[in-house]
Every structure is written in structure tokens, then in C-alpha cells.
């Protein structure tokens, strides 16, 4: 049984790493597997990936995992209980709410912010950067000046101004972060595009009669994608911090939403006597940020095209 398992495992591995793939699918899977092998060779990156997977699982099954309601507290009997109290593993806050449960539900908010920012910013940055880089001339100048304008504002200050104008709330916080986050991606995509624009393989495809749009979409963008993925992943840690910062300032998620930054803000009043109220969400932010950073680092090694050349 186990021998057969190993045998077929080796068969799959050999199939994936075959030097002569027999189909498009096999070639693609083989390449993905080789990337995974490079990624998995970095232990810390795997730890980071485990953190992120745990985050997704916790957010998905928050209803099952949380021992208490994140909103309803026991004001009379369970205010500011220390960690390891019976029934409250990480203690309770000033309204008698279970901190662990709030952290578990808060992971949904964190994940939502991160995903929405990534979905909003990465494609915009990629498109603006590659089009500007490939087209050159007046289009390049126009697009890049717009980018520079956004780049000139300090991220948090612009986010603050936007939220102040749009009104506080998690959606507006996401919009504010997204608007301030895409310019670096555009700059990076443009730099990558300039590097590949005069490569022989781009000239070759031009000589095939490909339209500029086709060249940008199918030939230039894949070359920018890996560094963009790495950069976005590494930026996620900072985005979580900005979201938490907005929450801390009362401009992000509004009470009683269990947003981690807002939780720190409400806990800071008791930081000297009841340290855990502010510390626990702080730890959560730290661990998730670390997870994103470790994965980003691992991806940088795994997706590096120079590495893939070998």
C-alpha cells in the first residue's frame, strides 16, 4: 500500500518534471511544480504560507471556531478578564467581549481589505505601467505624470484626507488605500516594460504582425507579472498596517466591528493595567504581516526569471 503510494508519487513527480512534456497542461503544471520546489526550498517562506493559509481558514470558519459572539459581551461578569481565564483564552475587553472571538472574526475584515486592495491596485498599476512603457512618447509622459502626482502624496496622509472626505468606514478605507497604492506598481511595471521592450523576442513578435495591444497583453505583461506579484505580496503587510492605522484613528472600521486596528485603539486606554486588550490584536497584525513578508520573499526567489532560465 505505502510502497504503491510512493511509487505513484514518484511517477507523478517524474511526469511533472519531465523534460519532454506531452501537452500544454503538462508543461504548465510542470513549470508550476518547479516553481513550487524553489519556493518550498525556503523554509521561512513555507512558514509564511502556513500563516496565510491559517488566516484564510480562520476567516472562512470563523463561525465554527469562535467560542463566543464577537459583539455581545458580558458587561456584568466578564469585563477585562486576563488571558487564560476559564472560557476566555485571550481574556476579554472592557465590554466583556471575548478577545479571541473578536480576533477570529476580525481576520475576515483583514482578509477582505487585503484582497480588495490587491484586486483594485495590481491590475491598474500593471496596465498603466505596461501601456506607458510600451507606447512611449506623449502617452508615457501623460500617464507617468499622473502617477507622479499620486506618488507625491504621503500614503497615510492622502488616505486620511480621502476618508475624512468620504466618511469613515471600511469600504472607504479600502478605496483610500487603493488609490494611494497603485502608483508604485505602475512605475515598476513601466521599468520592466522598458527593459523588455527592445528584446529580440518582442521585435520578433512585432515582425509577426502582432498589434500593440496583443504585444502588451500577451508578451509584455507576463514578463512584469512575477515581480508585481512579489511586490504586492510584500506590500500587503504595509496595507494591513495602514488599514489598522486608519482603524486606530477611528477612520476605518467602525465599532463594534472587530477590526484589529480599532481593537488596539480601544485597548490603549488600559494598556498599563490590562495590557492584553491592546496586545492581542497587535500580535495578530504582527503575525499576519510577517506571513505576507515571508511569502513575498519566498516568491521573489521562486519567480525570479533569472532563476527560471537555468
Amino acid at each position: 500500500m505505502s510502497e504503491a503510494g510512493i511509487g505513484s508519487g514518484q511517477g507523478t513527480r517524474a511526469w511533472l518534471l519531465s523534460e519532454y512534456p506531452a501537452s500544454r497542461m503538462q508543461a504548465r503544471l510542470g513549470r508550476a511544480y518547479a516553481t513550487w520546489l524553489r519556493f518550498a526550498a525556503n523554509r521561512l517562506a513555507v512558514v509564511g504560507l502556513a500563516i496565510l493559509i491559517a488566516l484564510v481558514l480562520v476567516a472562512t470558519f470563523a463561525g465554527v471556531l469562535a467560542p463566543h459572539s464577537p459583539y455581545a459581551g458580558d458587561l456584568a461578569g466578564a469585563r477585562l478578564l486576563p488571558p487564560l481565564s476559564p472560557g476566555h483564552l485571550l481574556g476579554t475587553d472592557d465590554q466583556g467581549r471575548d478577545i479571541l472571538s473578536r480576533l477570529i472574526y476580525g481576520s475576515r475584515l483583514t482578509l477582505a481589505v487585503v484582497l480588495m486592495v490587491a484586486v483594485l491596485t495590481a491590475p491598474v498599476g500593471l496596465l498603466v505601467g505596461t501601456v506607458a512603457g510600451y507606447a512611449g512618447g506623449i502617452i508615457d509622459t501623460a500617464l507617468m505624470r499622473v502617477t507622479d502626482i499620486f506618488l507625491a502624496f504621503p500614503k497615510l496622509v492622502l488616505a486620511l484626507a480621502l476618508v475624512a472626505a468620504l466618511g469613515p468606514g471600511i469600504e472607504n478605507a479600502v478605496i483610500a488605500i487603493a488609490i494611494t497604492s497603485w502608483p508604485p506598481y505602475a512605475r515598476m511595471a513601466r521599468a520592466e516594460t522598458l527593459a523588455v521592450r527592445h528584446a529580440d523576442y518582442i521585435d520578433a513578435i512585432r515582425l509577426m504582425g502582432a498589434s500593440p495591444l496583443r504585444i502588451v497583453l500577451r508578451h509584455v505583461m507576463p514578463m512584469c507579472l512575477s515581480s508585481l506579484i512579489v511586490r504586492v505580496t510584500l506590500d500587503m503587510a504595509g496595507i494591513i498596517l495602514i488599514a489598522a492605522g486608519l482603524g486606530f484613528l477611528g477612520l476605518g472600521a467602525q465599532p463594534p466591528a472587530p477590526e484589529w486596528g480599532a481593537m488596539i485603539a480601544s485597548g490603549r486606554r488600559f494598556i498599563l493595567d490590562q495590557w492584553w486588550v491592546a496586545t492581542m490584536p497587535g500580535m495578530a497584525i504582527l503575525i499576519v504581516s510577517l506571513g505576507f513578508n515571508l511569502v513575498g520573499d519566498g516568491l521573489r526567489d521562486a519567480l525570479d526569471p533569472r532563476e527560471a532560465e537555468r
Binding site: 512534456p21 529580440d200 523576442y201 520578433a204 507576463p222 526569471p305 527560471a308 532560465e309
Partner: peptide, 8 residues
């Protein structure tokens, strides 16, 4: 340099 490095 004349073949796209990420295409089969």
C-alpha cells in the same frame, strides 16, 4: 534573446 522566456 529571440524566444519569449515564459512561453513554451
Amino acid at each position: 534573446g529571440s524566444l519569449h522566456p515564459r512561453h513554451t
